[in-house]
Design a protein around this nucleic acid. Structure first.
Lengths: 344, 344
DNA sequence: ACCCTTTTTGGTAGCGCTACCATTTACACA
DNA sequence: TGTGTAAATGGTAGCGCTACCAAAAAGGGT
């Protein structure tokens, strides 16, 4: 009843949501006390808290985060910038992030760059305007503009997916080492004509780095390191295509190291269809450790990347920094595991 | 140079980011003109626009969206509430949303309920505080609290995934019809002992609705509709498990209608491993139309749900409403396609 | 050059909340 | 009961931007 009067000529848009002040009036306390009820309930006496709680329900109050954020110059929002959502990989990272950040009362603001560095810079610019508490961004490679924006920003930034020297903190794995490890595994199994197959390695430069590690291992063994870099399509299709291409043009090839599990599984399924025996006719290896690889016959030999863990660790580092707690290393190497199936 | 003075004792936190006023001073115009530069550049004369542009770069201004949002009582943010990120399905929907909304200058705020209706209500409550321009939420089933919050809110809401009567707008497909269609297909192919297999259908109630349609079709044909509802695990594992379970306990079963492609593919791969012939020994059907099904041998018979399209359409409806443009129907049925492989 | 219409620009006053202190109250102990 | 300390509450003044209207400048025709 008193609610309507209170809103008579509020708000230019006529929305008339009840405000903190309405709640305060209803509860017979000062607005700041209602503010404390939300931000630090412990600071109120039980009696006061109950009064405020009743008033909140009475007027049907919904907090205006925007106003609070403006006044306090912080937001419980963490922008997350990833290159793509096409890949399960980033989803799992996001899941890890979400898990930890939501538990701490932060919301994720999602941005996707499509592997475009200018788009990335634009997203960063937009997100900085949100007075975010921190920012999570995939990769260590950024445009100068992005780098500058983030360096001038005095909030924590976590770069994810890769391990190395970054802007601030970072959580990831050493892709070069992963590529090297798989190539070494293939060499140890006796394969000598090993191809690397990927799609758009320029864009997916982490797969390119794995190739670098792969090449180093082969060259150390005195072997060439042929590379097939396809234009991007649906990943499983590319895998099947790569298998056919290599079987046709390089009949001596005895093993293919694929840039990821999607391609490797595409090849595996195509081989099954065409009666190509794996690994007798040709061995196949992947990267990521997706569940599907374990269901294949033969099971896919791959490197498991701890994707969800990357998200969790990244969130933890960020939260620690926000809370001013000590963090161990700025860079965290989450490592990887070679998972041996029968495919290589 | 004049920049430092300007910020001497600004901001309680000492952050000292340049503000609109700083840009205005630098450009020799009024703050509101700089505001227009960002919100409606066309409204400025070329000469003015250039002056402002130069000043923006000069002082390194980054817009404060929070302040703008408070003043204008709107945010270019669209919260998206989904039950889970474990499933590729929601990712693709999000991709469709992202595509359309980002192009229109809106950011996605991501929330995940883990299929918990209370969590959903809490997320809605939080998001309403963001003065969002609209909201996208998965499903037509919500708690009373959620329903009430959204009904009192005077901004557009799009419920996605399902087609039917909702709070405001909705975009999706008729799951009952989809289940019915697949069951009918299996009947037409001559199968008579058809099982339905899912995981946690209580939670994943859309799969439960597909089962309802499936049951109706079978009952109309005078057949029983046995259901296997497993506790949730990794989906492909559940599929393999379901296949084994049904083969053991119901040897007469000649077809399994799986709740989704992940389970169906898990079963398909397990069958391949164990030398069970598909569809001769038992037929298998799925739902979703994931790419992997097309790579299987035999190819998976499934129903393709237009996931990305749901996202796009939902975004379009929302944008249309925000802009006050006329929208056709409040409810959009995006339909589905039965994709016939060799598995059933 | 003048008047009128159309653009373009500016002044003022908040948006709803929280930081920063000041003030009051509660409570323990002398 | 008085005193000192800690805990709880309140007053004031913005946070940086945009809505609203008013004023000024720019065209366009005579």
């Amino acid at each position: 009843m008193s609610r309507d009067d209170a809103h008579e000529k509020r708000s230019r848009k006529g929305a008339m949501q009840p405000t903190l002040t309405d709640v305060a009036r209803e509860a017979g306390v000062a607005p700041i006390t209602v503010s404390r009820y939300f931000n630090d309930p412990e600071a109120l006496r039980d009696a006061t808290r109950l009064k405020v709680e009743a008033a909140v329900n009475q007027v049907g109050y919904v907090r205006n985060m925007i106003a609070g954020s403006l006044a306090s110059a912080t937001t419980r929002v963490i922008p997350v910038i990833v290159p793509s959502l096409a890949n399960v990989v980033f989803i799992e990272v996001i899941r890890g992030l979400q898990q930890r950040l939501e538990a701490a009362g932060y919301q994720l603001l999602l941005g996707k760059t499509d592997y475009d560095l200018d788009r990335e810079a634009q997203l960063v610019r937009t997100f900085l305007g949100w007075s975010a508490s921190g920012l999570i961004i995939a990769g260590l490679r950024h445009s100068d503009e992005t780098r500058q924006l983030l360096e001038n920003w005095n909030q924590p930034v976590v770069e994810i997916m890769e391990y190395g020297d970054g802007l601030d903190m970072n959580v990831g794995l050493d892709h070069r080492a992963a590529g090297h490890a798989m190539a070494t595994h293939l060499l140890n199994r006796g394969y000598r004509h090993i191809h690397y197959a990927g799609a758009e390695l320029e864009r997916d430069y982490r797969a390119g780095e794995r190739f670098e590690g792969h090449r180093q291992a082969l060259e150390a063994a005195g072997l060439p390191a042929p590379l097939l870099d396809l234009p991007s399509r649906q990943q499983m299709d590319s895998g099947a295509e790569a298998l056919m291409h290599i079987r046709t043009h390089s009949p001596t090839c005895d093993a293919i190291h694929f840039a990821n599990d999607d391609m490797a599984c595409g090849a595996l399924l195509a081989a099954m269809r065409d009666g190509i025996r794996i690994p007798e006719d040709i061995a196949i290896a992947g990267f990521n450790g997706l569940p599907i690889g374990r269901h294949m016959t033969p099971r896919l030999t791959t490197i498991v990347s701890p994707r969800e863990l990357i998200g969790q660790r990244a969130a933890e580092q960020l939260l620690r920094r926000i809370r001013g707690e000590p963090l161990g290393e700025l860079s965290i190497n989450v490592g990887f595991t070679l998972h041996e199936g029968e495919s290589a």
